[in-house]
């Protein structure tokens, strides 16, 4: 029960933990989720980010993000972090590009509600 368990078991290491009933949930991937999956595969093919690096990248998001982000949300954030660490992208470049992409939807943003 002590804090040593935080050291012994990283957030992904849940085999054997207590957990509730298995809810047999499934969903068809959203278009961006499928693109994210294809991106993961292409990053692996080109040896830019392999599967184990991706898994560790997700783990290093920490328990709160792992708990609150959805599966592919964790992947894309992990990819961004790994690309920053490898010096392939910078946070600033990503922020600028995200604004640019968002700007393409300016026609709908005024009518968008959520």
């Amino acid at each position: 029960m002590g804090t040593e368990n935080l050291v012994r078991k990283l957030p992904n290491d849940i085999g054997g933990d207590e957990a509730g009933k298995i809810e047999r949930v499934e969903h068809v991937l959203l278009p961006w989720e499928k693109r994210c999956h294809a991106l993961a595969d292409v990053l692996d093919f080109h040896k830019i980010i392999n599967t184990e690096e991706k898994r560790r990248g997700v783990e290093s998001l920490g328990a709160e993000m792992i708990g609150k982000l959805s599966y592919y949300e964790r992947w894309i954030v992990a990819f961004a972090n790994i690309l920053f660490q490898k010096g392939i992208l910078t946070p600033g470049e990503l922020a600028v590009k995200m604004s640019e992409v968002e700007g393409r939807f300016s026609d709908v943003s005024s009518t968008h509600h959520s």
Binding site: L30, P31, W32, R35, C36, L39, I48, L69, Y72, E73, I76, V77, F79, A80, L83, I88, L89, E93, L94, K97, M98, E100, V101, E102, F105, D107, V108, S109, T111, H112
Partner: peptide, 21 residues
Amino acid sequence: ITVDELPGYFDLMETAVRELL
């Protein structure tokens, strides 16, 4: 999903990462 829906934060991030690479 409608075509005129503003993409969410993570959707934008995926597009941005992919296009930069």
